[in-house]
Design a protein around this nucleic acid. Sequence first.
DNA 1: TGGTTTGATGTCACCTGGTGCCGTCAACGG
DNA 2: CCGTTGACGGCACCAGGTGACATCAAACCA
Lengths: 195, 195
Amino acid sequence: MSRWEPNARGRLEQAALELYAERGFDDTTVADIAERAGLTKRTFFRHFTDKREVLFSGQTLLAEAYAAAVAAAPASATPMDAVADGLRAVAAIVEDRGELARRRQAIVAANRELQERELLKRAALAGVIVDALRARGVADPVASLTAETAVAVFKIAYAQWSTTENTALTTLIDQALGQLSAATANGASASGPAG
Amino acid sequence: MSRWEPNARGRLEQAALELYAERGFDDTTVADIAERAGLTKRTFFRHFTDKREVLFSGQTLLAEAYAAAVAAAPASATPMDAVADGLRAVAAIVEDRGELARRRQAIVAANRELQERELLKRAALAGVIVDALRARGVADPVASLTAETAVAVFKIAYAQWSTTENTALTTLIDQALGQLSAATANGASASGPAG
DNA sequence: TGGTTTGATGTCACCTGGTGCCGTCAACGG
DNA sequence: CCGTTGACGGCACCAGGTGACATCAAACCA
């Protein structure tokens, strides 16, 4: 018999998710989480760098899936097309874990520090996308610009999906992409002020 | 004669900027900052909500300038054009405070927590832009999308400006806008995957 | 078989960010 | 002349986060 129950990390994630939902992020201490998981505060910090990170461990997975999809896009695809493929790949994963994603989202939406961390994760995702685009031969600043835009599209589609029902995330992403194209195609001349 | 030296807040900002630059953010305690400013830790936290915020008090100003510029754009301007005007307005302010902006930027670039806070400020700016666009009658999700894109453009142009010399921020912004237009106009069809 | 090493956890002490509460005292206002 | 206000100091306290050392099952090895 093992000296400790298995999957300590998973138990911590589970306990944190429950407690953040029950009492809110601020009113939950790390000691609380560890206790519910049958562990100690010190062990919590061996698995997660801080109290927020426990909610964001899945992000790495998304970033990898994204990069893989961008890399797999045909050579003929424009940067924006390749990035759109990545968005669809990530959307598929998120929709798979639908319920979990929504619970997580509700917790994050209720707390400013968590939103801050989410932004950092989003920026990291943008960084991964930039790398994937560069690997396709896309130069800066187009690579950065495309990556940032893609992340923005995802954010907006995801926000819609989180708060509404019955619409697939992939559909919302495609809609947002279309609207982005329309918004930028005829406006934003680079020649000078609008007025 | 006054009981205390004037401009406590400004002295704290100055002391923090110096110390963060000298020793780094992590190796500077709030007590250190307060001491250099001739104040106490408790007073620091009366002026700033946390140790990071002391570097970001100017952001409010930028957001206001941005909103004003968007509101002042002619009715005939597209959302993207209006937002581009806002970008130019903000760029002008940043370039005015050029040296300070660069010092601040170097400190932020060296620390992850500060980058996180910067992202939050950027998101807040996006929120202000969305409001300004809605006030112009732009509906969601085009408003959100345009705002996020504008912020992304600013981020990229600002990053270029921070690390290079001799190119005006406004010029870089105009270039980025042009490239964005090119990147989105012909790619990113909303009809389905690229491959 | 028996000894050794490894790795995940516990325990403890400690620092610092951040807050609540109360005290102090110049300036201000009537 | 007196009460109020506002900006600051001082103090105690909690919680996040870290370093150092102890523990002990399991895995590995002679």
